[in-house]
């Protein structure tokens, strides 16, 4: 990505002008993040539609949707991926793609029953929910 930039393009901080996030954008993103947070809390307690408020899937999707949007703003603007080079973009996107691939593992848990481990339920400090184990002997 070494482009032919004239030396005069560097700022006093050693950055190219096109890598700098304008102050206005920083304030805007901050406002959106605060708005997202306010919306999350408002929706969790004061959503006027009762049937939606009682719909777990909808409420969780809404909260996570807002969180993903906030994360997108932070990664794209605050973390500078938008202004970054292609290599930076590959690394940034790769990390989050991996995160979603990880959740494919849930397919294993969803599709099969959890096997009881004999003896494990007797370990006093075990965090395993003991009443899920049937007939431990």
């Amino acid at each position: 990505m070494a482009a032919d930039h004239g030396h005069h393009e560097y700022t006093a901080g050693g950055a190219h002008a096109h890598h700098i996030l304008p102050q206005k954008t920083i304030f805007l993103i901050f406002g959106l993040l605060l708005g997202g947070m306010a919306l999350t809390i408002w929706a969790a307690f004061f959503l006027p539609v009762k049937s939606l408020l009682e719909n777990t899937f909808f409420m969780q999707s809404l909260a996570l949707g807002i969180a993903v949007f906030k994360a997108y703003l932070v990664v794209t603007y605050f973390m500078g991926v938008k202004m970054g080079t292609r290599l930076v973009k590959i690394f940034a996107i790769g990390g989050f793609v991996w995160f979603f691939v990880l959740f494919v593992m849930m397919a294993d848990y969803v599709s099969r029953p959890m096997e009881p481990v004999v003896g494990w339920e007797k370990v006093p400090s075990s965090a395993l929910p003991r009443d899920t184990v049937k007939n431990p002997e």
Partner: peptide
């Protein structure tokens, strides 16, 4: 305590904002 959690969310979002500004000023040499 969702209020304390919310307060912490507010604090962390603000700190992210000040960091973004710090980088901005660092780039400008201020």
């Amino acid at each position: 305590n969702w209020k304390m959690g919310g307060l912490n969310t507010l604090i962390l979002l603000t700190s992210s904002f000040t960091v973004a500004l710090a980088v901005h000023f660092a780039q400008k040499g201020n």
